[in-house]
Computed example of a mutant assay.
Amino acid sequence: MATIDRFSGHADLYAHYRIDYPSELYDFLVPLVTTRTTAWDCATGNGQVASALSAYFEDVTATDISEQQLKQAVQKPNITYTVCPAEQTPFPDHCFDLITVAQALHWFDTDTFHQEARRVLKPGGILAEWGYGMAQIDPVTDPVFYHFYDNIVGPYWDDNRKHVEDHYARIPFPFDQIEYRDFTIRRNWDLDRFLNYLRTWSSVQKYIRQHGNDPVLWVADQLKTAWGNDEREVRFPVFLRAGRS
């Protein structure tokens, strides 16, 4: 399976407008880890998860295939960033207490990645994989947003996106003592912030490259009256699975 990079071309936009994850997720995840010396955040992007993990682990290694993404990453004294694919790393055997993958598993050769994760996890170490689904705002906004997702940029999603829609149900998870949890991301955004989040989507960037115009302007036109100048609560459902090596 060829390595897929859909985010290097808009790494700066991604760094400013991509979402982070709720504290409740880490409150659940971290106590599963029996020792908290080393963690690996795989496909870290601009380091959202790595930054959170740095508060709990002595050393955090964060990797991505995109050098451009890592140039935008959060810098902390105990985070080391490395450019490498998820499926083949330079790390020694059994060196990590925790491995995390946030909103990226669907881009991997998952069988090969899981073999690599098992190799580098310490005995009894934890692998946690999570993602998030479609935003929910209100009954007026949601139909416009969903039409945009399904019909305007829908044809420009990679097939991999289907794995996010079904919460990775079709991707095997060959680990023990598996736990599943759901969380909710809640953010208060004005319309401009929401539109720029949409521009981080790989489907939107693919549309722009093919057509030379920004499809998000359609959303802006449809929502500017209903949204107004105020902030709205935007909610994202998060699904997580964690297992032990």
Results as ranks from 00 to 15, higher is better:
residue 112 T to G: 02
residue 65 I to Q: 02
residue 126 I to C: 04
residue 35 T to Q: 12
residue 210 Q to S: 10
residue 28 F to Q: 08
residue 7 F to H: 03
residue 75 Q to P: 05
residue 200 T to E: 07
residue 217 L to Y: 04
residue 165 E to K: 13
residue 14 Y to C: 08
residue 242 A to Y: 00
residue 105 L to C: 14
residue 21 Y to I: 05
residue 9 G to A: 10
residue 195 L to R: 00
residue 64 D to I: 02
residue 7 F to V: 07
residue 200 T to K: 08
residue 144 V to H: 08
residue 207 Y to C: 09
residue 6 R to N: 12
residue 119 R to V: 01
residue 69 Q to N: 13
residue 201 W to F: 15
residue 127 L to Y: 07
residue 150 D to L: 10
residue 139 P to V: 06
residue 117 A to Q: 06
residue 201 W to P: 00
residue 48 Q to R: 14
residue 90 P to S: 14
residue 168 Y to I: 01
residue 214 D to F: 11
residue 44 T to W: 01
residue 67 E to G: 13
residue 107 W to Q: 01
residue 143 P to F: 05
residue 236 F to K: 00
residue 231 E to M: 10
residue 233 E to H: 05
residue 96 F to Q: 09
residue 159 D to C: 04
residue 158 D to L: 11
residue 152 I to W: 03
residue 122 K to A: 07
residue 147 H to L: 09
residue 221 D to L: 03
residue 132 Y to N: 08
residue 161 R to T: 05
residue 200 T to S: 07
residue 245 S to Y: 11
residue 106 H to R: 02
residue 4 I to P: 00
residue 38 T to F: 09
residue 98 L to H: 08
residue 148 F to S: 09
residue 236 F to C: 06
residue 101 V to E: 03
residue 243 G to W: 01
residue 220 A to Q: 15
residue 21 Y to A: 09
residue 106 H to I: 02
residue 51 S to D: 12
residue 137 I to M: 10
residue 206 K to Y: 02
residue 85 P to M: 06
residue 117 A to C: 08
residue 150 D to K: 13
residue 72 Q to T: 14
residue 33 V to L: 04
residue 202 S to M: 11
residue 6 R to T: 13
residue 18 R to E: 12
residue 68 Q to D: 13
residue 216 V to C: 02
residue 114 H to S: 07
residue 209 R to V: 08
residue 20 D to S: 15
residue 234 V to E: 03
residue 60 V to T: 06
residue 136 Q to H: 11
residue 218 W to M: 13
residue 47 G to T: 03
residue 244 R to K: 12
residue 144 V to D: 00
residue 234 V to K: 00
residue 136 Q to T: 14
residue 53 L to T: 05
residue 65 I to L: 13
residue 74 V to G: 02
residue 169 A to K: 14
residue 69 Q to T: 05
residue 121 L to S: 11
residue 187 R to M: 14
residue 116 E to W: 02
residue 66 S to C: 09
residue 164 V to D: 03
